[in-house]
Every structure is written in structure tokens, then in C-alpha cells.
Amino acid sequence: MVTPTPYHLLSPRTIVTKIISMKQQEPEPPKIILQPRHRTSPAMWCAAIVCFAFSVLLILVGLVILIVFLTVKPRTPSFDVAHAALNSVYIGSPPPYFNGDMTLTANISNPNHKIGVVIHSGAIELFFRGRLVSAQALPSFAQRRGQFTVLNVHMLSSQVVLPPEVAVELLNQMKSNKILYTIRGTFKVRERFWSWHYTYRMTAICDLELTAPPSGFLVDRRCTTST
């Protein structure tokens, strides 16, 4: 092993040469390469301006729709059964089948004070214990603001096959003078406000309680409307 000569025993020239040699052996620091800056093209600026303008337009349209909605306050038309008469009910066998005759008067009201409505594709269905026993299509009609329409509907049932347990339930209700039916009305409603139109589906459900025929009359009803 060779012992290095101490610096104080070396000549100045040797010391300087040694320092220069050590400097040359040191690793160079990494060079930082700066990437050249790219200027944004005019097409990119145009695309950004168009996107910004479109976003502002959407916000303005949304605000206008919200203001109109809060000003107009659109409401769904209401449906109610004002009168019903059960004229006849007949159950034949075998198998159990059902014949029936019912007339009812329904009211459809437009509660809006600023919007007219058009009601079309309407139909009323009659159910007993969840079984469809009669159906009737309705003509289309328009209603002005705050107007109501009276509909006279004749529900006829002919040779409707019933499960035995449902037929027995109907006979028992006739004996107790308390017959329970369900009316379902489905409508396509279009609301009109100036040139603005909005279309949606409306469903009305009414549970009816009637006395037995031939002079069966409406005792109670409960109606709900949904969209």
C-alpha cells in the first residue's frame, strides 16, 4: 500500500496540477434542456370562444325556462267521478262469466290559469278485483284556462270470463249491497303556452263503492291523479 505524500511536502506546481486533475474527474452536473414554447393557434382560440359562448347560451336558456316555469306554475289536470250508476250485473256458468252495464259521469278539469291543455289518446278501464271487465276509448278535446269537461261514459261488459273465486266474491258483494270497482283513466296531455308545448302521460285511479243493481248508485269514491 502506497502512502500519499502530504500536501505540505509537495511543490506548489504539483499541488495545482493535482487540484486541476481532481476537478476534471468530477462528474458534470446535468444540463437542463428548456423546451421551446408553442404559441396557441388561432383555431384553438376560436374553438375555446365557441365553447364559452355555447355554455353561456345554455345557462341563459335554462334561466329563461326556470323563470317561465315559476311564472306560469303548470299543474296537472284533475280527474273525478261525479256520478255512477250500476244498471245490471249478471254472472253465468259454466265457466263463470260476467255481463255488466254501468254508466258514469267523469269530470276532467284544467286548473291552470295561464295554460291551455289538449287531452287525447284517452281511455277508461273498469276493473273488479284487479280483473279488466270493460274498456272505453275517449274522444280528444281541448280545454282553455280554468275550463272543465264532463264526460258521460257507458261501460259495457259482455261474456267476460272470471276465475271462480272472483265470481264468488262478486256474488257476495251483491248480496251485501256493497260492490267495489276500480276505474283507471289514461290520457296523453299536451300543455300549450304561446308557442311552447309540453306533452306527458297522465293516469287517474278511482276506487268506487256502489249499491247492487238494478238501481245501483255511487256511495263513495276516492280518486288520485299522477303523471
Rank of each mutant, 00 (worst) to 15 (best):
P77E: 14
H197V: 02
H83Y: 14
S121A: 09
K73D: 09
L180Q: 11
M102N: 01
M1G: 03
T225S: 13
E169P: 00
L151S: 03
S215R: 08
S109T: 07
P95C: 12
L208Q: 05
A53Q: 06
F79Y: 11
G185I: 00
S195T: 04
F141V: 02
P29I: 02
Q136G: 00
A43S: 07
V160K: 15
P163S: 14
I119M: 13
T14K: 11
I59M: 15
I67V: 07
N87P: 00
V56M: 13
M174H: 05
P94H: 12
G62N: 07
S140E: 09
K73E: 08
S88Y: 10
A84L: 04
V118C: 05
I91A: 14
L208P: 02
Y181M: 04
V133E: 01
I33L: 06
H83N: 10
A212E: 06
T203C: 08
G116I: 00
L34G: 02
T76G: 11
V153Q: 01
P36D: 15
L156W: 04
F187E: 03
P4D: 02
E165S: 08
T76D: 14
P111H: 09
T40D: 10
I205L: 15
L58F: 09
K73C: 07
Q35A: 10
I108E: 14
I32H: 03
E125F: 00
Q24G: 11
A85M: 05
V160E: 15
A85S: 06
T17E: 15
F54D: 12
I19D: 04
I15V: 12
I179E: 00
I33K: 04
V117I: 11
H113A: 09
V168I: 05
T211Y: 07
P4E: 04
G92Y: 05
S21F: 04
V150S: 14
R222K: 12
P12K: 09
S93V: 04
V189P: 01
I33V: 08
S93L: 08
K178M: 08
V64Y: 11
R75V: 04
L210C: 07
R184M: 10
V150Q: 15
C51P: 01
T105V: 03
G130D: 01
V89W: 12
N99P: 02
L10I: 00
R184H: 06
L180G: 06
A167P: 02
V56A: 15
F98P: 02
R221S: 15
H197W: 11
N87L: 10
Y181Q: 00
F193T: 01
V189F: 02
